[in-house]
């Protein structure tokens, strides 16, 4: 037990070993230790959703999880799910529908929606809105995001 923690985890499929200050949260670790700056920091108190990442198959708030707690975990960030093409149809729909403007909320929003599409593949517009209700977007007013989910789903079903 120390003010520092040695951790080994898998990030975007690669094994990573680091010694971190125990107080370092997971999103700061990803951004400043690993250079994975696609995950953003918007509030640091768990409300805005910009730091949403996937840990052990589920989305979590990167600011409310310690890096030390990710010992042994499998972490995926926007960079990883982009490179594997896992969410490519969704990203394409976001671009086509202009469901992102400044793009700061987008990585967290996309990871949240990826989980929605897995857990509730037939979600109604209202359910989509509910599922993303913990992800703040100041630019779009959300309608384009809801539309993009529907577009991605349609294209996925037709492909």
């Amino acid at each position: 037990m120390d003010m520092y923690s040695d951790i080994t985890l898998t990030v975007n499929g690669e094994s990573v070993t680091r010694c971190v200050e125990s107080r370092t949260n997971l999103v700061d670790f990803l951004r400043y230790e690993l250079g994975l700056t696609g995950s953003h920091v918007g509030c640091e108190h768990g409300v805005c959703g910009a730091c949403t990442i996937r840990m052990d198959g589920r989305i979590v708030r990167g600011c409310l999880t310690l890096a030390a707690q990710a010992e042994g975990a499998e972490v995926w960030t926007i960079e990883g799910v982009s490179e594997t093409n896992e969410i490519r149809p969704l990203q394409k729909a976001f671009v086509e529908r202009n469901a992102l403007q400044c793009g700061f909320c987008t990585p967290g929003m996309l990871l949240t929606i990826a989980e929605l599409m897995e857990r509730k593949p037939d979600a109604s517009r209202e359910e989509i809105r509910e599922f993303i209700s913990g992800n703040f977007c100041r630019c779009t007013g959300y309608q384009a995001i809801v539309d993009a989910v529907e577009i991605a789903r349609e294209k996925g079903a037709n492909s």
Binding site: G46, R61, E115, F131, S133
Partner: peptide, 9 residues
Amino acid sequence: IAHPAIRNR
């Protein structure tokens, strides 16, 4: 309770 990412944790 809060939102999906919070409920996951």
